[in-house]
Simulated scan of single mutants.
Amino acid sequence: MPRVRRCRQYGCHAMCPLPNHYCPLHIEHEAEYLASRERWRNKERSKAQVHKYNTVTRNRTVTKQEQYNFYRTRQWAHLRQSVLDRDHYLCQYCRVIGKLTPDSKTVDHIIPVEAKPSDKADECNLAVICRPCHYKKTEWERKYYGTGNGNELKDVEPIEDVKRIVLMMNGRNNHA
């Protein structure tokens, strides 16, 4: 039996034979995808740039290094898979507004790790989130909690309710 992989087209679950990345229905995207991979591969990145990114930008503090190391553990891999199975790969933030976003593969901390490090391995503090919602939520966390590079953590009440977070992310109910 030939080796296969899932088609890269969003929402398509068809299998395609290796070395293709798209099924016969979406094969017209193959050349474009291979060209983008080639452009990425050919970008010049010196060892100094990579080292600076990893040591200065990405893991700028001991806390960030600990967080990074946590996401590389077997415990996190099992937690993440458990949450994905629990939420059926559906974005919980989109679900609040009545929209179903399938194939979401990111697991997010409802209360950010910076704000409450003790809950980083608590399954109740995790939810599946799609990319657009994750971007919005990260921006909201920077404003509400003061997370992120260059910010100071604020002493605010942690919000555990996804519905309330969605309302606040979308600019409604800011003082609830």
Rank of each mutant, 00 (worst) to 15 (best):
Lys47Arg: 14
Arg39Gly: 00
Leu126Lys: 00
Thr57Ile: 11
Arg95Met: 06
Tyr93Ile: 05
Ala35Trp: 06
Pro102Phe: 13
Gln49Arg: 12
Arg86Lys: 06
Glu139Val: 03
Leu126Ser: 02
Glu157Ser: 09
Ala115Ile: 05
Thr73Met: 02
Pro132Glu: 04
Cys7Asp: 05
Cys7Trp: 10
His26Cys: 05
Tyr144Glu: 00
Leu90Ala: 09
Ala121Leu: 10
Lys43Gly: 00
Val113Ala: 00
Asn174Trp: 13
Gln75Val: 15
Arg72Met: 06
Asp87Thr: 04
His21Arg: 15
Arg86Trp: 12
Glu44Asp: 04
Arg142Val: 00
His88Ile: 13
Asn69Met: 08
Val50Leu: 09
Cys124Pro: 03
Glu38Cys: 08
Val128Met: 05
Glu152Gly: 04
Thr101Ile: 08
Glu38Asn: 06
Ala176Thr: 10
Arg74Thr: 15
Pro112Trp: 03
Lys143Pro: 01
His26Asn: 05
Lys43Pro: 01
Glu114Trp: 06
Tyr33Lys: 06
Leu100Thr: 15
Glu123Ala: 14
Asp103Arg: 07
His134Arg: 04
Val50His: 00
Ile27Gln: 10
Val128Glu: 05
Ala176Cys: 14
Ile129Lys: 03
Asp122Ala: 11
Thr138Gly: 02
Met169Pro: 01
Arg172Ser: 12
Arg131His: 12
Asp103Cys: 04
Glu44Pro: 06
Val162Pro: 09
